[in-house]
Design a protein around this nucleic acid. Sequence first.
DNA 1: TCTGGGGTCCTAGGACCC
DNA 2: TCTGGGGTCCTAGGACCC
Length: 435
Amino acid sequence: VADRVILHVDMDAFFASVELLRHPELHGRPVVVGGGGDRGVVAAASYAARAFGVHSAMSTSRARRLCPHLVVVPPDHGHYSAVSARIMALFRDITPLVEPLSLDEAFLDITGTRRLLGAPVEVGARLREQVSTHEGLDCSIGIASSKSLAKLASKAAKPSVGGYDSTGSDTSGWHHGVLVVDPADEERFLHDHPIGALWGVGPVTEQRLAALGIVTVGDLARVPRDALIAHLGAGSGAHLHDLANGNDDRPVVVDSQVKSISQEETFAHDRHALDDLRADVVGMADQVADRARRRGLAGRTVQLKVRYRDFTTVARSRTLDRATDQPDVIRSVAWDLLSELPVERGVRLVGVGIANLVGGDDALAAGGGEQLTFDGLVGDGRNDPDGSARRAAATGAVDEVRRRFGDDAIGSAGARRRRGGDDPTGDRTTRDGSR
DNA sequence: TCTGGGGTCCTAGGACCC
DNA sequence: TCTGGGGTCCTAGGACCC
């Protein structure tokens, strides 16, 4: 773990930049991607829009007030996914150790690449060049000895509204859009940041710590571990103490499994009756089922989320005997859960999801370790830019397991997996915990 | 600051089992 | 009959991220 070299890439204004590529006529104009209605928010803002003070997570209506000529483009997730897949493939040309964090961010472990690719700053510069040449997009890169430091560094390498920041002046390896934090400078680089800059410190924790007089990461590093645990709980207290002291061993994880699939919608106008929600719940359940099946996944827990007019949010869930990817099952469980909630209070948002997923790699395991093979390479960003071949492969594998072992194979495999192989029948009642 | 949509992770309490 | 501690699973809520 010693002396790792971790690179964090973060695309600049990703959604907005992708839209500008598709709509060259918008170049130079203030553009945001996001919901256009009364209740929409900004998902990404172009740099021209940021000059007006517009930023992501801001309501579109406020953004319009700040910038009257704002162009609001509705999001096209499918397109961004396809572009993202191609970019991730470029990253994998550098190293197979790539961990995507979202469509526009990834960690790369480039520890072993020095001999082949040169100094880290060269790797970063080349990566920027590749992304620019192949996709016409800019990104910012931070390189350091851990994930959290690399992430701080990529943020410091970001262009500001007026041009590139010069935050690199007190660190070595500053290169246009690439910031390498020299191990000798890491402590000062880290301790100078406000605590809110740490990955995992949001407004609540920031306030809580500010009340104790803790403002910078340096302040945080000086707080005794036990005191921090007493204030923030065992998990986050210890974690933040480690981060503030530059201890971050978290590895770059290449194949992380999806944990849940959900779909939610904020209504343009609040709903007050169950009947007015039926069509939406059915539609969301069907979409969740569809997305699960495309990926060869099924879920044992059905989740329902409701946000009321006053913004209070409740979640209800029910775990079934067996994993399902059936739209009618998800539908009826979600409806059941919703029926027990007081919708007459005024419902602003409803969400439906599944969790406790089985399938995908588990489906292959359920088939006694047998795997299906495919001609050619499936899942490479070049020959499979939108991931459809990979999905087809996953779905095909699950279908094949079903065909060979019956419809129950997927669900009971999940039950076996969770309980360590002691109950191949998988029959159990879970509604109220009785057996 | 009148607050989207998709996620992940953590905590805490209760049921249940051994 | 009373007491108990550890482990796992489930549910609900909340912080946080992009």
